[in-house]
Amino acid sequence: MATLEVDDVSIAFGGHTVLAGASLQAEAGQITGLIGPNGAGKTTLFNIITGLLHPSTGRIRIDGQDVTELSLHKRARSGLARTFQQLELFAMLTVRENVRVAIDIRRRWSHERGNAAALTDAILERVGLAGVADERVTSLPTGQGRLVELGRALASQPKILLLDEPASGQDDIETERFGHLLQELAADGAAVVLVEHDMALVMEVCHQVHVLDLGHMIATGPPAEVQVDPHVLDAYLGTSRTVAVP
C-alpha cells in the first residue's frame, strides 16, 4: 500500500477539463516525480491532494485511509505538507518566525512538547537558511524563499511532502545541494512528490516519474524508461503526425 494514493481524479473549471482520471502513487522513502508541460494540471493535482480544491470524481488516500472529504487542516494533520509554486510566505515575519509558526501549529494539535526554538534552529540549519534566519522573508531571493517553504513544510513533520517546482529560482549549485537534501529526506522515510521543470534534477533523484499531459497521466515508470517513452516525447516535443483524410 502506497503512502499516498491518488485514484482516478478529475476536475473541470467551467467546462474546461483540467484533470481527467489522473492517478498517482507515492511510496515512503522514495522520491516520486510528477512532470508535464505547462498547463498539464500538476499544481491543480497538488491543490486537490491538499484539499484546496475538491475533485469531481476520484479519491485521495493517505496510508490507505480515504481523506477526500477531510478539510484541509485535518488532511495536513494526517501527514501531508506542501510547498507552493507561487510562494505563500508569511510576508510580515522573518525566516525563523515562518518556520516557528509551522512548529507551533503542529505542537498545538499534536500536544507534543520539546524545545521549539531548538527545533526551529535545526530545521533552518538543515535547509541551509541559518545565515538568514532573522531576515524578513520578502527580502530573500525566490530560491531561498522556496527553501523557507520547504523548512515550513518540514516543521509539520510530514509523511508526505509535496514540492511544487522547488528548484525554480535556484542556480545550479543550489539545485545540486537541494537534490541531496531531497534524497536525505526520502531516506528519512518521507514520501516526496516532486513537481519540477528541471529535468536533470528529476532524472537524477526520482525513483518513479509520472508524466501528466492535458489532465491525463500518459506515462509512469522509472526515469530511464519515461525518458524514452514515445508519448512523453510527443507531449514535450511534439511529433509529426499523419492526419487521416476521410
Partner: peptide, 20 residues
C-alpha cells in the same frame, strides 16, 4: 505570529494543519 501568518496566507496555514 499565527494571526500574522493567517493574514499573509490562509491557504499556507491550513495546509500546515491549522484550523482557521
Amino acid at each position: 505570529r499565527q494571526l500574522v501568518a493567517m493574514r499573509d496566507s490562509e491557504a499556507a496555514c491550513a495546509t500546515l494543519g491549522l484550523n482557521l
